[in-house]
Write a protein that binds this DNA or RNA. Structure first.
Ligand SMILES: [Mn+2]
Ligand SMILES: [Mn+2]
Ligand SMILES: [Zn+2]
Ligand SMILES: [Zn+2]
Lengths: 152, 152
DNA sequence: TCACCAAATGCAACTGCCTTGCATTTGCAT
DNA sequence: ATGCAAATGCAAGGCAGTTGCATTTGGTGA
């Protein structure tokens, strides 16, 4: 066996075993600034560390998601699944439809809405998902044509 | 040939032919309250009207989306593609994670954010997507456990 | 009205993402 | 060290969506 993992107690707390692959995937997700596809993670894992099967990557990510260790979402372009570490923090980002760059923002406009809706139609908000599209500073200059994302 | 279609000039305006299938799909979308999968549309079309191939449904929806006649999105559960008529109106809805009911709302909290972001980080918003999860009036009563959608 | 042709469609094969069954290996408790 | 459930590798399979190609169809102009 290898050295005791940094993530051992985190995994044990969730009632699952600490393994080479799980540790590697957690580490990789921790190093990732933005959500990744299973394929991207798989390729990086094969380059950086040991051999791993793609099905193991999927199964591990699913396991992590079921424990809320990772958040699973879908890429806007192609619907492909994206995975990111769950930092239990509230984050949104801007997607530049020119260069596909992601920009993190700390603004969240849901706070006020929460109370409004609770009063108006008796609905208790537990979560939400917000994607914002547009043009970044660099892409604005090139006056690219408007995209499909308009009117969303 | 059949009777002149209700949607003929709409389609011609976009530079594409008015056909039996395209008219049927537009009609069906018009009757649909919420976004539908290609499969759902396909099944309904086969029941209600003539024979049609699934690939034709996909190609037609893609064509419509490229002309911005329909909006394409992805279902939260499974990432499957959803299609709806583009009414060029700004709408959001609430998803009850208890009973999976959709509730339309007219609130949109992006307006103010738009100007804030433009000033703060020089980003021009062209569109956005907002999904809100929670418990409706009925489901609140049953005190269902919180779901995966929390902390989004 | 008719002939013509590009566009639309049907059909079947195919791709890519993701899942699953099963044999083998591994983590970990005893 | 031993034993066993959980994790993994491997290969096959499932399913949403795509594509190539032959045929049909809608619109245009003679
Ligand atoms: Mn938010
Ligand atoms: Mn909005
Ligand atoms: Zn950009
Ligand atoms: Zn409900």
């Amino acid at each position: 066996m290898e050295e005791n993992s940094k993530y051992k107690e985190l995994l044990n707390r969730e009632g699952i075993k600490s393994t080479r692959h799980r540790n590697a995937i957690l580490k990789l997700l921790e190093e990732s600034e933005f959500p990744q596809t299973a394929e991207q993670l798989y390729i990086t894992l094969r380059e950086k560390t040991a051999s791993i099967d793609l099905s193991t990557v999927y199964r591990t990510l699913d396991t992590f998601a079921s424990k809320s260790l990772v958040l699973k979402s879908n890429r806007v372009d192609d619907g492909k699944a994206l995975y990111e570490l769950n930092h239990n923090e509230h984050k949104h980002h801007l997607l530049c439809v020119g260069c596909h760059k992601l920009i993190s923002i700390e603004d969240c406009p849901i706070g006020e809405l929460k109370q409004t809706l609770k009063n108006k139609i008796d609905f208790d908000i537990t979560g939400h998902k917000l994607e914002i599209y547009g043009y970044c500073h660099d892409c604005k200059k090139y006056k690219l044509p408007p995209s499909d994302h308009d009117n969303l």
